[in-house]
Design a protein around this nucleic acid. Sequence first.
RNA 1: UGCCGGAUGGUGUAACGGUAGCACAGCAGACUCUGGAUCUGUUUGUCUAGGUUCGAAUCCUAGUCCGGCAGCCA
Length: 615
Amino acid sequence: MSNATGSNDHAGSGKPRPSDFIRDIVAADLASGKCREVVTRFPPEPNGYLHIGHAKSICLNFGIAVENGGRCNLRMDDTNPTREEAGYVEAIIRDVAWLVEGWADHCFKMKPRGAKPVVTERDGRRDYYMPPAENVPSAELANPRSAVVEPFYASDYFEALYDYALQLIRAGKAYVCDLSAEEMEEYRGTPEKPGRESPYRNRSVEENLDLFQRMRAGEFPDGARTLRAKIDMASPNIWMRDPVLYRIRHAAHHHAGDQWCIYPTYDFAHCLSDYIEGITHSICTLEFEVHRPLYDWILENLNLPRPLPHQYEFAKLIPSYTVVSKRKLVQLVNEGIVRGWDDPRLPTLAGLRRRGVPAQAIRDFAYHIGVTKYPSLTDIAVLEHTIRDDLNRRALRRLAVLRPVKLVITNLPEGHREEVEAVNNPEDPAAGTRRVTFTREVYIDDQDFMEEPPPKYHRLRPGGEVRLKYAYIVRCDEVIKGPDGRIKELRCTADLGSKRGGPTANRKVKGTIHWVSAADSIPAEVRLYDRLFTVPEPDADGADFRQFINPNSLEVVEARLESGLREARANEHYQFERLGYFYLDPDSTADRLVFNRTITLRDTWAKLQSRQQQR
RNA sequence: UGCCGGAUGGUGUAACGGUAGCACAGCAGACUCUGGAUCUGUUUGUCUAGGUUCGAAUCCUAGUCCGGCAGCCA
């Protein structure tokens, strides 16, 4: 098939375009001429924050648009006024724009602010169509309060949906039902037993029309009546047993205001929203598979003039060592187990972003996990790998000491101070070098010295040698302890000829450790994050996931950073050498820096050590 | 036990009747002024039983196991 209009590069990763059963269908539809352009949509309900699971869906929907020169609409699936809030809409726009920026922003579609569907006559049939805004600068797409564009909203189609409901009634395919919720449940039957027809099922068209109009006019209380599709109460598929299309809810809507007291259900609104926007491929998760016959039934019974959208289902992401369900995320936030929706320990896009995870790494993750109909548990190590892989290439290297121990070089004069040259990124020579101040007294990390080290320990020990990165090889002569027995300082002598370019520079020593100048470094708060849960599936078998919370998911240390980090920038990713990747937190102030550890470096020593301990 | 869907190494995925491949994880080694990165090697797999075929992960039959569905949630 042709790539003429699409990118052959997946998600900006340089990897070949992916292939999966949905992309195969899209390619076949294009090849057969079943559709000429590809239009997808990402339809979150604005009642929570987007998370890594949504990222899979976003990458799928936007990816298909990018690869085929199509477009992808961001749509708020907001048909239930009692659950949804405008505040979430802004967060969703921000997260989506962040995730697709630089990759799919040209396919990312919103609509002119305030626009409603265009009404036309086609072949004597009334038609509603909601086109996207054209030529929108990407800054506007990323601005949740843009004056020119806004997302698509299912609630903008309420008038059209009402009209479609009227058409169904007139065709004798929908009726107003007076059964209470409890009665309806009873009439519905069970999966094994067919349901019974409602006594209101055979009302006349005129009576249905009258009643439905009065439902809209607010004549009945919540729950008094519903509009139902007239399909088949004996269907083996529960969703075909005269499903509810409209319910009465005397409640204001976050977007539509207070003009409605009847609201369409998901099943009625979703397929028609897709149609109205000209969606070709409506991609959703597996739990909607059994709804597909209803999706098709509604569209096919409306005599619509344009091509109909089709629904395809894939398995949603289940990541290990975290939870992703809206209810559980809300619980973590509301119970104060984490500090908010953007807590860096959460799998929310806002949390991952704050932690320092690049959007590219999330897109790479989506690429690696693939798309199938098999509901699998995905090892979070795959995400950790794509994060390290991306950050290794781009992060600026800096020196920082998390748990400082003083090291004094006795053969250097009091007040000695010099500058050494340090590499900014060994993966990227263009990143250049910088000067770092080296002094007689430095700090090293307490893990880099042991009085009685285990076998294979390559770092500093009494009488042992180690290289201070970019500076000298030092030998530990003496360990000075305070009255409490804790190490106060390490007294060392340096091999003064061992600096780069010096006569003994090429001497081999087992270990190289990082350091910062005692006098020239700056203090900072560093937040060390670990997985939020201690088990791969914290919510398996209906167990209370809170019992598996990792008590050490956050550790705060008072660190010392090389002084150049005073100018650390937000949005810049840093590697603190030998420690991991770090990212400036918005809690930082002018005189107090706060860093989040995005992720540690791969640590083969730690692995070796834990294996030794297990023996 | 109704309907819909699914099953390939430890995990995730590819192979579209023709050599079971890739990634992550693991293990072993090389290299290294990051125990990082990089490179090399390597352990482990087609749910079961029949059938069709020169040939089956793939097609057929039967079974097993797993997931989803009985909101006026999405």
